[in-house]
Structure formats: structure tokens, C-alpha cells
Simulated assay, not measured.
Amino acid sequence: MAATNGGAPLVVFDFDKTIVDCDSDNWVVDALGATDRFDELLRRLPWNHAIDAMMGELHAAGRTAEDVRACLRAAPLSPHVAAAIRSARARGCELRVLSDANAFFIDAVLAHHGLAGYFSGTDTNPAHVDAAGRLRIRPYHEFAAPAPGHGCALPSCPPNMCKGKVMERILLQEEEAAAAAGRRRRAVVYLGDGRGDYCPSLKLREGDYVMPRAGYPVCDLIAAAPPAAAVRGWDGFEDLARVLLGIVDAEIARAVAEQGEVPAVVVPDCRALPLPARQEAALLPQAVRVPN
């Protein structure tokens, strides 16, 4: 069955150390001078609960949500990443974010760089500013009793979010949409770096792609037990753009070949085109001077 969606894949990005070159939680905590206190909280709380508690303490100390947003505007985002996002979207890709950061941090960064409109959706830990002005961050999957948690047994998944469960839902939606349209499911490309990015990589299938960041934990996990998807690593953000757009272009070309489409080439009838007067004169037979 041919793909009739132009062949452009669905591209799903992790956020921390993939779109931005930092851990956004640590970036904010460090920028607001709360590193030591956050480390103390992490000794007794799961990460997601610790960052929520940290936001509460910062609010009590007079820090506002706007202070947090200002920190995030300075988070490092490579121009190569921004260009890759824009180029992939221009080629017809749908883009999504799947991240264990949180909605407030992600939205602040993407909005600051003018990239928010390029993404069709974000799956991440929910966050909001409450009536008192305090930033609240909640787990994507509730796991404190009596909540059952996400139920994934893979040790690389944190308790608050199994990205594999989210990827399963995304793939199911893709398959249902493809079946309804009578076409082959488009390829899915997933980019990530951390241990939590291994589970969604395993959910991808032959014909999909996983793009792990070289030298980061997900690479070791993939090397030990590779997924069914094709693995295309990247090392640095210029490389990310090159690898991603190479995949996108290859998928588009494959779809064109499957459909038997040949780009139309219009060949003008040169005989009907008037020549410039100077060029026309140069092509006419010239009179030959005959000596008397």
C-alpha cells in the first residue's frame, strides 16, 4: 500500500538535551541559586515531586513564574535545531514533543524562539500557575498511592512517565488514521538522549527511525538491545539537522517512487521562442565580400 501523505514522517522530539542543550529543571534551579536545596530534596523525593516542591519554595521566597520564564529564555538552543525544526515542517512533517520536562518549561522555550507553532502537540508532565502565582508541576502518570502508576516494568522508565506508553498511543493513532485514509502508515522518527528515551524506541517498528544522541545513556541501552527501528545516531546539533533532514528527504523520495510519480518537466518549444535581435542577427548567414 502506497503512502499518500507525501511521505513526510512524523517527527517526535525529546526536549532536554535534544531541543535544548541542557536539563531544563537543573537550568532553572541553578539560575535561581537553589542548586544545593534541590539536591537535598532529591535525596528524599522522586524527581518530579522534588521539582514541584522546589518551585513551591522558590515562590515562598518571592520568586515568580515570570522569573522562571526569564531563566528559560536563556536556555541554550542551537540555531541548527531551530533550522531543522523549521525545515522539517516546511517539508511536510508533523512535529511533536515527548518529554519528561514539563509543559511550562517547554512552552516558555519554544515560544521565546518562535517555534511553538511548528509543533502539533506535546506530551509531558503537566504544569500550571495556580491562583497564588505558584508554579505547580505534576507527573504525567500519577504514581503516588492509590494511583496505579504506568505499569511499565522497564527499569529505565521513571515512575512519573513511561514514554513507551505514550509512543504506543501515538502509533495506534497513526495506524488508525492510515487505515481510514487507505494508506500505509507514515514513518515515525524519534530523537532522544536519556534512559527514558529507550522505552519509546523499543515501540517503534521496522520502517521507523530512532535518533539517539551519541555518548548519552540511551546509546548504551540501544547498543545492548537494539530496537526494530533503524538507528541513526547524531553527535552535535549540526549533525542532528543533517541526519534528520536526510531521513525526511529519503522518506519523501521513497513515497514518490512508490506512487510512480515522475516530477513534471516542461520542455519549451525552442522554435517558438523569439531570439534577441542581436543574437538573431548573429545566426543569420552573412554576406560574403567578393573581390572585383
Rank of each mutant, 00 (worst) to 15 (best):
S24E: 05
S99E: 13
L95V: 01
D23N: 15
C93P: 03
A65E: 04
D100R: 15
G62Y: 10
A65S: 09
I106G: 03
R89W: 08
D25F: 13
F104E: 08
S120E: 15
D21I: 05
W47V: 14
S24T: 12
E57T: 08
V109M: 00
E40H: 13
I51A: 09
T64A: 07
E57L: 02
A88P: 09
L58I: 02
V109A: 00
D25C: 10
L110C: 00
W47A: 09
I51M: 03
F104C: 02
N102P: 15
I51R: 04
L72A: 07
F38A: 06
G121A: 13
T64M: 05
G117T: 12
S120T: 15
H80L: 03
G114L: 04
G92P: 03
A50E: 06
R44L: 06
A84C: 00
N26C: 10
M54S: 01
H59Y: 12
P76I: 12
H59N: 08
C71Y: 08
V97H: 00
R37P: 06
A61I: 11
A111D: 11
A116W: 03
N102D: 12
H113W: 01
A90K: 07
L98A: 04
I85T: 01
W27S: 01
C71V: 02
H80R: 05
R91K: 10
A90T: 10
D23Q: 08
L45A: 08
A84S: 04
I106Y: 00
D52R: 03
